[in-house]
Design a protein around this nucleic acid. Sequence first.
DNA 1: CAGGTCCATGACAGTTTTGTGACACTCTCT
DNA 2: AGAGAGTGTCACAAAACTGTCATGGACCTG
Lengths: 229, 229
Amino acid sequence: MPARPKLLIVEDDLALAELIVWHCEAEGYVVRQTADGEEALLMVAEQMPDAIILDWMIRHVPGIEVLRRLRRDKATAQVPVIMLTARGEEEDRIRGLKTGADDYMTKPFSPRELLARIEAVLRRARPVTGGQSLVVGDLELDPVAHRVTRGGAPVPLGPTEFRILVHFMERPGRVQSREQLLDAVWGMDSDIELRTVDVHIRRLRKAINLPGMADVIRTVRSAGYALEV
Amino acid sequence: MPARPKLLIVEDDLALAELIVWHCEAEGYVVRQTADGEEALLMVAEQMPDAIILDWMIRHVPGIEVLRRLRRDKATAQVPVIMLTARGEEEDRIRGLKTGADDYMTKPFSPRELLARIEAVLRRARPVTGGQSLVVGDLELDPVAHRVTRGGAPVPLGPTEFRILVHFMERPGRVQSREQLLDAVWGMDSDIELRTVDVHIRRLRKAINLPGMADVIRTVRSAGYALEV
DNA sequence: CAGGTCCATGACAGTTTTGTGACACTCTCT
DNA sequence: AGAGAGTGTCACAAAACTGTCATGGACCTG
């Protein structure tokens, strides 16, 4: 991640665009702005921004089409996109998220909220974009090869344990509730018992804490679990 | 978010204020109201509302000044603010949003709409607040990692102690009565003995005052406790 | 300094939350 | 079909945490 992440704002309400630009620049981002979908795609190709804020209703090309074309091109498929929708356009949001938007904001929104989401989306993007292996402490996880090592020694993990560990390593140190883990690993609408998470955590611990090693997973009572950093 | 979010209405048109209060209370919010900017700031400090409805034209201190001072104080910087402006005061709105207002309403408005915006603003507030870690003196608390350190050394805390400390660190130096602590930590309608607070304060002290360290919690006789700054 | 109020502290019994081993099932591969 | 790995639940054990109380000390007031 560069020191000053680049943002592209695609928004044709000039007053709103200006407001967003003003706030983002104050926050230290490098900001480009356009009101036009075609131009947006050109600018993306040219500058490869770190995140895109995309209004749903813009000139020439609807937002969803921009998004679709971004996702189709491998070079831009990983750039995080936050879409802006009007209040109540539930269906747009769903279609947007399905097409690969990373987050959405309903107008009107507060600038502070937008900044928070940008930050969140940038933070999340880091591990995803690279296809790089994740490293936390003496843990290393290669998402492509599906391989994990602890202090260099290979750690055999089952599929579920692997997904849990990925989730943790993308958020080192952050407490994850059982609900969050269920959503992330099993999917939003699985009807799995909360306590099942405990059992998988145990299996993960057993596999990953080779004899004599400190526990990498911290239990936070009445809150969840966190990967130690 | 507490079961019944607290609102502060800052509005000096008494008829309008009364109307708003009536509607908000009907909706289940706990509502405070004042017509005066200075007093509003005091009330915020005291009660830490979950959202503020702020008229732009009020006595003594203009609305924007109230907002600016709210945002400057770290303890209150995250409280969502909905501003009320007269029709056509476009510039005020822009300035307000730039200063950190979360939403605005143009008078006249329907109570229905106001309630909808309050709800939206409360819902959005949640994730935003969680970001930064709190620092007071040599104490540091990371709400995301659920982790506390004193002078760099980790401090293990139980869930209740943790919540109490969060409450204190959001209001450094400010005396909190046992009642306030009960409301904030246990919830408004818990039937817990007041003296139970004492015991938890003691446990918190024990955990946080490592040997040789000064006590961070000051007892204020017949008033409550405060976190030393 | 007597008497009262308020607070600190240790103990404790009851709850809640988490750890753990076992088991039945499903899937895949052979 | 049989073997083997991986999963989701359960029941019980082990920890961790809680709320209350009784006691004694600290502080105040007259």
